[in-house]
Design a protein around this nucleic acid. Structure first.
Lengths: 196, 196
DNA sequence: GTTAGCATGTAAGGAGTTACATGATTTT
DNA sequence: AAAATCATGTAACTCCTTACATGCTAAC
């Protein structure tokens, strides 16, 4: 009965980690967090907030400052902060799947470089498994439709995933350089940019 | 109450258009149709087949040929064929969205070049709308989190969509050349490949 | 003969959407 | 004063997944 959608939950906790927000604003920010084409609906958000309040992870407070209207400002509790830290540090399979990876990535600033590397590698190997399946499925006429459009769609899909793997590989190298500065030449400043 | 998931329905009808199949095999083919990471579950497929049978779009028949076991072979009825033709010819907004575009594309061989162009253009303008939103959302620190990882995620998302737009543009040009051969020089043979 | 894979289904429930219902505040 | 936008919520419904339940056939 309790809403347990980890991705949305983490997004809310992470956004409230920076600053308290009310539902209407949260919706806009959650929607824009990943490049989701689809907007998050209130029918999902408000029940989720309710559940988080009930579990003591966030607190609902009437607005105090500013000449403001009937809106409810939510902020993280101590428990909520701990919960978010646990989610951000998690580098298990949950962080690799399509639904959760984006949110985990968006809040990488809240985890250490080791965790980031493990999440990125997990994501990459998941995509590589998918590529293996797709590549073996392509040549067989038997079982798969031999249609130029179907083929082109699959080719394009494979190409997209390959590009994502390349992206991940670059990020992994950057992060590895950060987590093991032992092998770095003396005097190398800590890199600031994710993509130089 | 009736299953009305257009994407799955179209995929099933389209696959049965080529040849009769039983559920187990259908599942594999539907799963591999688009590059979907996720596999289609029986809990979705079988109720869908049931619904299609009830509506007279497909017929369930025991297998006749081959030394085969207890499996139910489904084939398209006349109504089903008509329904599929209608879906394949549809170039409206339904064909543009994330869920349906892939299936429509996979069965482009069953529609004319005019329809194909309209679907591809619709899809492209939808992605371009998304890009406009994302691009205007990027520069503002106000409202959006100013975090290097969040930014990188959004940058990567935008890049992916841009690449998809390019892909669509190339396809549109190819299809336009097919639908209006008036301007083609005499003696030009009909192109066979989607990507030369 | 028993294990592994083929094949078909159902029940319960999660996650999210749409549509609805309501009201306050700001802008025109 | 009307319209637009901000803001919060609920109810019903859809689509899909997981987990379960069942039995046939082929291979070892």
């Amino acid at each position: 009965m309790g809403t347990r959608g980890t991705a949305l939950e983490m997004a809310v906790l992470g956004l409230l980690h920076d600053t308290p927000l009310h539902g209407y604003e949260l919706r806009k920010q959650v929607t824009g967090l990943l490049g989701w084409g689809r907007v998050l609906s209130y029918g999902t958000l408000y029940p989720c907030l309710k559940s988080l309040v009930r579990r003591g992870l966030i607190a609902a407070g009437s607005c105090t400052a500013e000449t403001r209207r009937t809106r409810i400002t939510y902020s993280l509790t101590t428990d909520g902060r701990a919960r978010f830290a646990a989610l951000a540090t998690d580098a298990g399979p949950m962080a690799w799947d399509d639904d959760n990876f984006g949110v985990h990535f968006a809040f990488f600033a809240h985890s250490d470089a080791r965790t980031r590397v493990r999440v990125l590698e997990g994501r990459r190997s998941r995509l590589e498994e998918r590529l293996d399946q797709a590549r073996t499925a392509l040549p067989r006429t038997r079982g798969g439709r031999d249609d130029p459009y179907t083929r082109e769609l699959q080719r394009h899909g494979i190409e997209s995933v390959e590009r994502e793997v390349t992206w991940l590989t670059e990020l992994i190298e950057t992060e590895r350089a950060r987590s093991t500065p032992l092998e770095a030449p003396a005097g190398t400043p800590t890199p600031k940019e994710t993509t130089p």
